[in-house]
Design a protein around this nucleic acid. Structure first.
Length: 1065
RNA sequence: GCCCGAGUGGUGUAAUUGGUAGCCACGCAAGACUUAAAAUUUUGUGGCCUUAUGGCCGUGCGGGUUCGACCCCCGCCUCGGGCACCA
């Protein structure tokens, strides 16, 4: 064995092995190799002028550790890196300095590459991509053209060529086409289609294309002179919206835009989540973002009071509570076109509708305007809403506003009731149908609105409660007595305390309650009960306490099985006038006052009372939960779920699914992005470029500054505009939505990647990056991948099989690392001082991979010490077959030196068990991304080996191998010093011996009544009886057993014995 | 407001998922080496009481289930993240 140098020189070692690995082509991925494959990908960086700080490499290091483990285990690993190099910061820089963003970006890419290289990542750099290079964005443009040339066939649930749609149109029109398309798509017959002009055809097809042009309100950022996507906007101060980059104010503006019809994939984007191994919170975020909700669309007839004389036919409709035949109403609608369709997820509450609200921007409002008697007021309100900026709307979030359309009513299709119609901006024109049926009793927003404008509140759902335990336990098989019951919450006349009834025989405390007698009003009934039980005579009714409850329970004082409808009512005593109370002989009630109701103590089994109390405390009287229908005519008694089906059927509603997610804006008024490869013809139509003419390269421009009038700098290039090229460019996320495919075959000139490469590499097995991309990149990539899958270009629906998020590394001051706080730590400096291996080990050791953690300048020293200790351990290494002369003379635990092998056993026994456990743990922990515990285990192992006078070479080698994925350079150096010719990666992953995982002797804890009182060192397979004997005889335990008789013994093999002693007696 | 996630020493964290709470590090204290410092190394390090042995308390707070709870259940509090009038 060569003797190791005395000092650990990280600089020398690290540059040596980086060169060596490159020379050997150690990290080259081979498409088509017979070995099993792993595709380990880290989100590529956006090269910005700020450079990398120590937070950035965290994910890269983790995935590199994973990739190195996989290579060592014999996988053919694709582990590439590239640059997301189109985007705002480079453009901002260009604007400021007048320099070409391309030159600047190319420089940055070089700088980033250098920064990454010194950390020693095992990337296959021959596969590097950069999204701003024409040979890359050629394919981004190509995919865009495919989207432009496709529509979504809902019947087959996949994207198809627009040419196929044209064929259908020619044959039979679009009446039967089930597609995801614009809401205002015209329906034409085959012959009508044929008669249409080119422009008309073009405009109709535009409603179907997956990349389409439309007009839309967008987030306009005047400072940046561009439009931003929702995920590029963050909340600013005072409820404003600002750009994520730069923090500039964002407002709403209507613009001609390119869109991608991501909504076509909404369902598949949700269902696909079940097939991938992603952190559950990311799935949750995506689900919420897509916001799927299933509901029903119901038509409400509109009746205009002022017009009833003009159109006599409508007079017939208003007959009260007639069960209207929907067909007649449809006819009326057809004649007048005046009905309002609402979307609701709660049709079961249809009988509780007390008004209807339309969004102020809704088209119907214009039509109704002439029939309303308060036209001026309504117009004024609409104007106000229009002028409200986004910030106003959010600021006024709490206070809802609206105005009634006087002289207009809507007719509830369920019961024919007429209800007022309002417009209010809490209803969004862009969601659902732009109108809602308001059920204030069972919807928070409607409740707030109703309360403000004093609109009626009608309860139609009773929460379903059953007593399932205790004395009140419901007896399902016994006869049921049905009753109507009030529960009165009565407040003291001047103090903040409430009346409570004590049921003496049962020791229950409840609010005052009692059955409602025939023909008795609920309020009367409550007053009577209060008087009977407490003697108080004068009380004032305050309010209903929300919706009633349906309660099933057994009433032991009456030996009755009951089903109550219980309504909570709130009263206040006017004065203390009280008559004498005759105590009820049977129930023996007494009463008292409670100031702060502690439900647990005062209200026995207080299912209802506790809810009533909570409602009063929080002033929240809305019950949004499902329950049982009441006040709903023939539907009474149905559960919410059943009622939704039945009522929908009865009123002729239709089941629909709505999404919060909108189509993605796919145009930026910027220079530094991919040009959109389309040509605007003089006749108004749009033509795609031919594939062979791609890439459409970015032209040179004089100024990179935005024109300020929502036009891209490209609009000032005469030749560009003359050629009819689209002047918008693609957004930043275009290039990153498919880059994982290009790595598979980055030099291919004919395809975005060859079929063979796409088939072989399949999907990304391990994707690592920040959680902040949940609703951006991670969603768009899934969308594009699914689209390309529909086109049979990629084999898998999902691009990323496993996703792991790294937590952010904060500054030592627990703030985000930024120049502003002066807390940025540069990885270059860390590598210079401590070495790349130390940085890698420390970033993995610092804490759980996905948690946000502060950087610790002190902490890194521990990782450096660890590596130095590993380095020093080389001097303790001995060859088993060639023991050093002083080996036998060492006195190990008093044994005489009667034989080398015996001595060897003793020596090895000191750390062997730990070593094998560590081998097992490190392998498992890397795969499950628990890097911190893997390193901790290796530290423990090292500490044990250090305590030993000698370490066998074969054991030390195993240790070096498992440390390799983390501290790659120093382990490679030690490995070669130990005389190995192959690099570690080619030497296999060490196997642990399962037999060596178990200890011969264990510590068995002895507990008395659950408290640790001693421990026994015994053999691992000790039985209960023997353990109990040993425990009893042990001095530290026996004194605890004297207090009483042993009544139970709990024995957990290999762990503990717990002796339960009955104290006293 | 709604939906997720988390609260453990001075600090970052660990705990076989119901079985010794505090592993591994950092920091701190004391000792060794040194003329000295740094580095290295040894020992100690949750709190309180005790000379030690030992004892009591202790995983955000309050309850519960259990022989036994950081872990499970109920009710709160605090922090972080997501959504924000999506009917």
């Amino acid at each position: 064995m060569k003797s190791a140098p005395k000092v650990y020189d990280h600089k020398k070692i690290e540059s040596k092995w980086q060169k060596e690995w490159e020379k050997k082509g150690a990290f080259k991925a081979v498409t088509g190799s017979k070995k099993p494959k792993k595709y380990a990908l880290s989100m590529f960086p956006y090269p910005s002028g700020a450079g990398l700080h120590v937070g950035h490499p965290r994910g890269y290091i983790a995935n590199d550790v994973y990739a190195r483990l996989m290579r060592t285990k014999g996988f053919n690993v694709l582990h590439p890196m590239g640059f997301d190099s189109f985007g705002l910061p480079a453009e901002q820089y260009a604007i400021k300095t007048g320099n070409n963003p391309k030159v600047f970006t190319d420089q940055l890419v070089k700088q980033y590459r250098k920064q990454l290289d010194i950390i020693g990542f095992g990337y296959d750099w021959s596969r590097q991509v950069a999204t701003h290079r024409p040979e890359y964005y050629k394919w981004t443009q190509s995919i865009f053209l495919k989207l432009y040339g496709s529509w979504y066939n809902k019947a087959k649930d996949r994207a198809e060529s627009i040419d196929d749609l044209v064929k259908i149109l020619e044959k039979s029109g679009n009446g039967k086409v089930n597609a995801v398309c614009g809401a205002d798509t015209k329906i034409v017959t085959g012959s009508e289609w044929k008669k249409m002009s080119e422009l008309e055809k073009h405009n109709l097809l535009m409603k179907y294309r997956l990349a389409y042009e439309g007009e839309s309100e967008v987030n306009w950022c005047p400072e940046l002179g561009t439009v931003l996507a929702n995920d590029e906007i963050v909340d600013g101060p005072n409820g404003t919206q600002v750009s994520e980059r730069g923090g500039h104010l964002v407002e709403k503006k209507s613009l001609r835009q390119w869109f991608l019809r991501i909504t076509a994939y909404a369902d598949r984007l949700i269902s696909g989540l079940d097939t991938i191994d992603w952190p559950s919170h990311i799935k949750e975020i995506q689900k919420n973002w897509i916001g799927r909700s299933e509901g029903v669309q119901v038509k409400f007839e509109i009746r205009r009071v002022n017009l009833s004389s003009v159109i006599p036919a409508e007079a017939g409709i208003q007959s009260e509570n007639s069960n209207l035949d929907p067909r007649i109403r449809e006819d009326d609608n057809a004649r007048e076109g005046l009905s309002i369709e609402v979307f609701t997820t709660r049709v079961d509450t249809l009988f509780g509708v007390t008004y209807v609200v339309i969004a102020p921007e809704h088209e119907l409002v214009k039509k109704l305007l002439d029939s309303v008697s308060n036209k001026k007021e309504v117009e004024k309100y609409i104007e106000e809403v229009k002028n409200k900026t986004a910030e106003d709307r959010t600021a006024e979030n709490k206070e809802k506003t609206g105005v009634a359309l006087k002289g207009v009513t809507a007719i509830n299709p369920a019961n024919g009731e007429e209800v007022p119609v309002w417009i209010a901006d809490y209803v969004l024109a862009s969601y659902g149908t732009g109108a809602v049926m308001a059920v204030p009793a069972h919807d928070d927003r409607d409740f707030a609105f109703a309360k403000k404008y004093r609109l009626e509140i009608k309860h139609v759902i009773a929460e379903d409660k059953v007593h399932n335990s205790g004395a009140l336990k419901f007896r399902p098989n016994e006869p049921i007595v049905k009753r109507s019951v009030i529960r009165a919450v009565v407040k003291h006349w001047s103090e903040d305390k409430y009346l409570i009834l004590n049921w003496k025989d049962h020791n229950w405390n409840t609010f005052i309650s009692g059955g409602v007698e025939n023909d008795e009003d609920l309020i009367e009934s409550a007053k009577r009960e209060v008087e009977e039980e407490t003697g108080y005579m004068n009380l004032k009714f305050i309010r209903e306490i929300g919706s009633p409850f349906k309660v099933k329970f057994y009433a032991p004082h009456k030996n009755q099985n009951r089903e109550d409808i219980q309504q909570g009512l709130c009263f206040q005593l006017i004065d203390s006038e009280q008559k004498e109370v005759v105590e009820d002989e049977k129930t023996k009630h007494s009463f008292g006052w409670v100031e702060e109701l502690k439900i647990k103590d005062t209200v026995e089994e207080g299912i209802i009372d506790s809810v009533l109390w909570k409602r009063i405390q929080s002033e929240n009287f809305v019950s949004i939960d499902d329950g049982v229908l009441i006040n709903s005519g023939k539907f009474d008694g149905l559960s919410s779920e059943e009622a939704r089906k039945e009522i929908t059927k009865a009123v002729g509603g239709k089941f629909v699914t709505k999404y919060k997610m909108r189509d993605a804006v796919f145009a930026r008024q910027r220079y530094w992005g991919e040009p959109i490869p389309l040509i605007h013809e003089k006749d108004g139509t749009i033509k795609s470029l031919k594939e062979k003419d791609l890439p459409l390269e970015l032209p040179n421009v004089k100024s990179y500054a935005p024109t300020g009038n929502a036009e891209s700098p490209l609009s000032s290039v005469k030749s560009w505009v003359k050629a009819g090229y689209e002047t918008n460019t693609m957004p930043g996320w275009a290039g990153s939505s498919w880059y994982f495919l290009r790595y598979m075959d980055p030099q291919n000139k004919k395809y975005l990647a060859s079929e063979k490469a796409l088939e072989y590499w399949g999907q990304v097995d391990m994707y690592v990056g920040g959680a902040e991309h949940a609703t951006g990149h991670l969603l768009y990539s899934r969308f594009w991948n699914k689209f390309l899958h529909d086109l049979k270009i990629v084999p898998n629906e999902e691009p990323f099989k496993v996703l792991r998020n790294q937590g952010m590394i904060l500054g030592a001051d627990h703030r985000k690392m930024s120049k502003r706080w002066g807390n940025v730590v540069n990885p270059d400096d860390v590598v210079k001082t401590y070495g790349a291996d130390t940085l890698r080990v420390f970033e993995m050791f610092i804490g759980p991979f996905d948690s946000q953690l502060p950087w610790s300048t002190d902490g890194i020293i521990g990782s450096r010490r660890f590596i130095e200790k590993v380095w020093k351990l080389q001097y303790k290494v001995v060859d088993k077959n060639n023991l050093p002369s002083n080996f036998l003379s060492l006195n190990h635990s008093g044994t005489n030196d009667s034989g080398g092998s015996r001595m060897a056993k003793i020596l090895q026994g000191k750390y062997e068990n730990t070593l094998h456990k560590t081998i097992k743990k490190v392998g498992e922990d890397i795969e499950s991304f628990n890097f911190n515990t893997a390193i901790s285990a290796m530290m423990i192992c090292l500490n044990e080996m250090e305590k030993s006078e000698f370490v066998y070479k074969e054991d030390f080698e195993k240790f070096i191998q498992i440390l390799y994925p983390f501290a790659s350079h120093v382990t490679e150096e030690i490995w070669s010093l130990l005389g190995n010719k192959k690099i570690i990666q080619d030497s296999g992953w060490p196997k642990y011996d399962p037999k060596k995982l178990v200890n011969d002797t264990i510590k068995l804890m002895v507990q008395v009544n659950g408290k640790v009182r001693g421990e026994l060192v015994v053999s691992g397979d000790i039985k209960e009886g023997e353990a109990l004997e040993l425990a009893k005889n042990s001095e530290s335990v026996s004194k605890w057993l004297e207090v009483g008789e042993i009544i139970k013994v709990v024995f957990v093999p290999g762990r503990l014995i717990n002796i339960v002693v009955k104290i006293g007696s």
